[in-house]
Simulated scan of single mutants.
Amino acid sequence: MSILNSTTAVPNISNLLPTTSALNQSCSPEDEFLSVPFAVFYSVLFLFGLVGNLLALWVFLFLHSRRNSVRVFLINVALADLVLVACLPFRVLYHALGNHWPLGPHMCKLVGNLFYMNMYVSITLLGLISLDRYLKTQWVQGGRGSCGRRWLRSSRWSVVSCGVLWAISLMAVVPMITLAEGNEEQGKCFQYKPRTEARSKAYFNLFLVGIFWLVFVVLLVTYGRIACNLLKASRDRPDLPNAMRYARTAKKSFVVLFLFTVCFVPYHSFRGVYVRSQLSDPPCEVRRFVDRINEVMLLFSALNSCLDPVMYFLLSGSVRKATIQTVSHVFCARTDTTVTTGSSTTEFHKTSQSSTYALATPRGSVGLIPSLHLKTSLEVVPCAQRPGLCDYEG
């Protein structure tokens, strides 16, 4: 009888074990001392990204007169970067409040998934731009079929590609926003989440990592081939008027690869380790370390939204000329009208008209060579016959 009483007096061991939510609360991976630096960095990225992408979108829509596929891609890149930048104030709010989220779980899922969706849309569009340039230099120059030539020379294929990309992205992100994962924490957002009970989301994140590396390989191959062809043309025929421009454009192609590598490669190199830790049950210190590295790498990915407008300005001669011309007209028009008189005023208008005409002509920055009045041929003015090199310098 005493044995039975002692047996019934033993408490249930399962009631003494901590639950999963209790373990998550006792081991918070987030470092509160990093909340202020994160809030400052995201605020800076928001300001520069907002101004830069609004200016780039304004140039592409109202100033950049050339209608081609690359222009369509760049407009969509600027839109994706703007949506990503619009998500940054919510991260600033979260870190400024000491890693506390006051807007509810649905708003957290909306902001977080839109951030990642537009990051990968921007990555894919940059890959499509490089593929577009490479195909034009290879197929159009080789004359492989009039149908393919017309399709590539027009902007229809870029419009269709962007439409399909946005549609697929929205279809993928809507279930992520509407469906519950079961690992949400009250007052938390953008935090480390174990996914032992939500493995599908972890596998989808690994799928996105695979897409990034595919785009990265496409960038390496296409820009590498384009740069090699330009350097070879510049080295074989140094007497051509645009030989030096070919060499400079080839070198600038590696600027795109450098920016892409700096912003995205560190994050996606570590992403596999991060997702693997979410699928297992690592110790608390490992969680903190993985989460800290992931958040720092994510800052570099968000930095790309600020560097894209700088890349447009530095590498595209037509965008650079349109921006500088507009800014100079806005700030210097009144001074120029009071100073210039008579023939000088007439000369100024002629120069302005000629520059506007040069911007509207179907030439890119690669084709702006001094010998425009020479006899047009493939060797003297190759840009006129090479639309893949005229669309986007860099």
Rank of each mutant, 00 (worst) to 15 (best):
D308P: 09
S234G: 15
S2V: 13
S146T: 03
I123A: 01
K136W: 08
T178H: 11
F254K: 01
T376C: 02
V92M: 00
L179F: 07
N183R: 15
F33T: 11
R195I: 10
P362D: 02
V10N: 06
S169W: 06
V330M: 02
L74Q: 04
K321G: 00
D239M: 12
I293M: 15
G367I: 00
V51R: 13
C162V: 07
H329A: 14
L279V: 03
G367M: 07
L303Q: 08
L359E: 07
K252A: 11
N99S: 14
R66N: 08
D132W: 02
T249D: 06
F73W: 07
K109N: 13
K321N: 01
S328H: 15
F73V: 03
A39R: 01
S155V: 09
F212H: 08
N12S: 11
Y357A: 15
H95C: 03
T338F: 14
S301Q: 03
V217N: 08
T20C: 04
I13Q: 10
H100G: 01
T249H: 04
L389I: 02
A358S: 15
L170K: 03
A56P: 12
V44C: 13
G224F: 13
N76C: 02
N294G: 05
T124F: 06
S158K: 00
R67C: 06
L231Y: 14
W101E: 04
E379K: 10
F313K: 01
A202K: 11
A384W: 01
Y223L: 13
S305L: 05
L220C: 12
F62E: 12
V173F: 12
V70D: 01
P241C: 01
